[in-house]
Nucleic acid binder design. Structure first.
Lengths: 144, 144
DNA sequence: AAAATTGGTACTAACTTAGTCCCCAATCTT
DNA sequence: AAGATTGGGGACTAAGTTAGTACCAATTTT
């Protein structure tokens, strides 16, 4: 399938949530609570986003995460690629030796061009475009 | 990953091969031999392509497959969707109740629009664009 | 020093995909 | 009419990927 994975979807939700209040240091528990994503999963994704430089973190008892750039400066493709790696609809888009039947392959398709089109489309979506919907429910779930 | 599956990749190679000689009735063994795709896999894909109407089949000892339309009338998206189903980068692109956190989702992204952009890009690629590369090796493999 | 928080890694389970095989139906050749 | 060849359909197995969890180390505040 040509599909964005669940984890990446979650990452977008998490980033959108943090982006609502860019100056605040949001903690894992708070983010998990309000996005309704399981806490371990939330923590895992936050670590990855921080490692890739999309979030800056602070340790310690009053620690948390915040954006490194403004919500209008972060595009969907950055978030997607920070979780999934480079976007490549076909193996051969990545380079020569990723395709199993490379030597015998008889097709000559403009995959690279198509790939670029998709990337470009995803670049136009900024984090600031993603938080239009109000949060449905807050502070109702248990703290596990 | 946002990626076209191997089987779909094979399907494109197979269609491109058949499209080289649109009037000829190509047989599974011949296709498998020249595309270097395992015969059972080739057969499986040919059945699906025929079922979706991209190929017409003839049974019997001189049977085989051929295109139902000209190579310039078949686009990459048709082949992709005939193997993978409707292209949907996010679950919510398919409709309301495909997303696990639908009720609590706080993002409002133009996924449908992005999806349409990708589909449009893949529609511009016709089967006739795919067979530019010469066949590397013919008639060298064993017949298993 | 204690409590709270992030950082990193390893591990398990579930799901999806890839690939194979078998038997049936249809058609052609002899 | 019989036999050979080909496609049709489905079931099954194995492998790989993804999702999710848990644990312990490092850091900071109080």
């Amino acid at each position: 399938m040509i599909r964005i994975s669940k984890l990446t979807d979650y990452a977008l939700v998490i980033m959108a949530y943090i982006g609502r209040d860019p100056e605040r240091l949001a903690q894992t528990s708070d983010i998990a609570l309000n996005t309704h994503i399981a806490k371990p999963t939330t923590a895992k994704l936050l670590k990855r986003l921080a490692k890739r430089g999309l979030l800056e973190s602070q340790r310690g008892s009053t620690g948390g995460y915040k954006l490194t750039k403004g919500p209008s400066e972060i595009s969907a493709i950055e978030i997607i690629e920070s979780i999934e790696g480079p976007l490549a609809i076909m193996d051969c888009t990545l380079g020569s030796n990723h395709c199993a039947i490379f030597n015998s392959c008889t097709i000559n398709a403009p995959w690279v061009q198509i790939n670029n089109t998709i990337v470009a489309a995803l670049q136009t979506i900024k984090l600031s475009d993603l938080h239009a919907k109000p949060i449905a429910v807050t502070q109702e779930m248990r703290h596990d």
